[in-house]
Design a binder for these strands. Structure first.
Lengths: 343, 343
DNA sequence: ATGAAAGCGCTAACAA
DNA sequence: TTGTTAGCGCTTTCAT
């Protein structure tokens, strides 16, 4: 069942059928009606691979993420896929587990399938791996790379704002010793988050305690072990911020294992506002990153740069905001200090 | 950069290049070597849409799931995608949110992209929606439909086994009043889970209390409200099983809000063994469904049925097993009963 | 062992 | 307004 068959049945040429399908104005309404009728009766299914072959466009966007098991990414994926469905585009998904081999392979797959653009949420931006995309003039949108290049736009999360609200919230509660469990060391996005944390402290005039800073890995395990390590500090922090919600979950698990109550003994603030935040006990106070808006920004960036791949891309910024739940409260009156002194 | 270019550079015909790429034995090793060299030097990227156009095969499998935000599906997706990467296949994802319009559209997209097969995890099996796939001889694998048809295989979860272990576990702890929060009423898979629950009770000689059965919706909200409703029963159940982990999470949240300790006051057992099970407090005792094995079974089923779409598909069964964590313990000595009497 | 060539379905340039 | 046709890149049949 192809366009020629339809054309024959409708007594027109396949070109006319094509024109009808693509909404060309060069067809009499009468002819169009006849063609549409045949189209419906024959439940015709177009074959986009012909178009892809002919024009090298596929109505497909690639999405590269590090880890589907991080709800932040799966939720983003949900929104992105929904948007693509609406615009009749296909999604080509690649999870790369921060393996550069997989990244290279994924890029190749995307090139093979002639994607019209790629959203890159890789944890690190190994420029050499994405080079081939640029060579083939495939528009790229990076997330949180905080820099733009030829054919490459960037959607950045405004950490400053959210961090400011979070620190402000803690300061108002009376916290002064605030720790931070960041991301994987060496990653640009980790640095940005850490810097935002430092700035936020500065802005409210709180002291930064370098011994209360830890690296995590954006996953549970990292948050857990960093939290254990923080507990060895004396005096302990009365509150911590984390690079993402999973890290916060891991930290809370550590505190729980150590018999330390959240938030009475230590307040915890996450980052992302993953769906499960209010399922955990206690429901997590966190800085929300609006995933739907991110997905929209990514798509807009792709659409926009599509026609000017040789020009420098644009920057998009998505805001972040504090969502207060129950993992934060005023600090306890340093019972730990007194107890320790007594020993 | 196409095969003709490569052929020219290597001084052969494009047919020979094609043969080299496909590992045909009809090429002299000498020629092959020369071609491979050119291939590498020119970093050639094949264009599968030509093959798709010519043969109607795309090396792509479709996956239809109800909801990407249910970690059960996102985790399955992770495994499935990994397997497809290994076999050099592409994934076409569709989330349908149990909207039949979306299901119909997704099926159409899959037909357009000429998928080689579809894994269907839709919550309900609206036969008319998937009819078009069968008409076009696209192999289908359903999950948990528990029936096979022409061109359609099924991968079924063995609920009986896991339920048996779960009920056995509770029975051994001394529970006798066990409730159940199932799935959406009317769905086949919900019925199967409920039946397995009933059988399991029977097998250990425990009584079934029909007033302790509730329907859920496979999501948090459903679990939560069903749990609240269960609390109104008197005497209350001392333990509950749930249709999936999200339902269990919702139930635990309800119990927590009601000030009822899990597991001291009520034991809870989930179903799936989602990654976050041991993050929650308390870590959830649950019946594990091995997602990796499911993904493997789905792929095997697709590969197997590919060449005999006109034959009835086969059945695959994946086992389930109990993972004991901390949301279960021996029942409390009916303090509630005594307290109530005192009033 | 290698090459020549047809044809998959579609669209756009061109012709009528 | 409609039709004719070339050609996108690949694989495979057939010829050599």
């Amino acid at each position: 069942m192809n366009m020629r068959t339809i054309a024959l049945k409708a007594g027109v040429s396949s070109a006319t059928v094509s024109r009808v399908l693509n909404g060309s104005s060069l067809v009499t309404e009468e002819t169009a009606k006849r063609v549409r009728k045949v189209l419906e009766e024959s439940n015709f299914i177009p074959n986009p691979s012909a178009t892809t072959l002919k024009y090298g466009r596929s109505k497909t966007y690639g999405l590269i993420i590090p880890d589907i098991n991080n709800p932040f990414y799966s939720e983003f994926l949900g929104y992105f896929e929904e948007l693509l469905q609406e615009t009749e585009h296909e999604l080509l998904l690649a999870t790369v587990q921060s393996s550069s081999t997989k990244l290279v392979q994924s890029v190749r797959r995307m090139l093979m399938r002639r994607v019209d653009g790629v959203v890159l949420m890789a944890s690190e931006f190994d420029t050499s791996a994405i080079e081939p995309l640029l060579e083939h003039k495939v528009p790229i949108v990076t997330v949180d790379r905080h820099s733009v290049h030829t054919g490459t736009s960037d959607v950045a999360i405004d950490f400053e704002e959210g961090m400011g609200m979070a620190i402000g919230h803690l300061a108002k509660l009376g916290h002064t010793r605030i720790g931070f469990i960041g991301g994987i060391e060496g990653l640009r996005t980790s640095q940005i988050r850490l810097d935002a944390f430092k700035h936020a402290l500065q802005n409210v005039g709180l002291r930064l305690f370098p011994q209360l800073l830890r690296a995590g890995d954006y996953r549970l395990a990292g948050g857990e072990s960093a939290a254990f390590s923080l507990l060895k500090e004396y005096p302990q922090p009365t509150a911590i911020l984390t690079a993402n919600d999973l890290t916060a979950f891991g930290a809370i698990r550590a505190f729980h294992k150590a018999g330390i109550n959240v938030p009475e003994k230590i307040s915890v603030i996450g980052f992302d506002d993953v769906l499960l935040c209010d399922v955990l006990q206690p429901p997590l106070t966190t800085i929300r990153i609006p995933r739907r808006r991110m997905a929209e920004a990514c798509l807009r960036a792709l659409e926009h740069i599509k026609d000017n791949v040789d020009r420098r891309g644009s920057r998009y910024k998505v805001p972040s905001e504090l969502i207060v739940r129950e993992s934060t409260c005023r600090p306890s009156k340093r019972i730990s200090t007194t107890t320790k002194r007594k020993l």
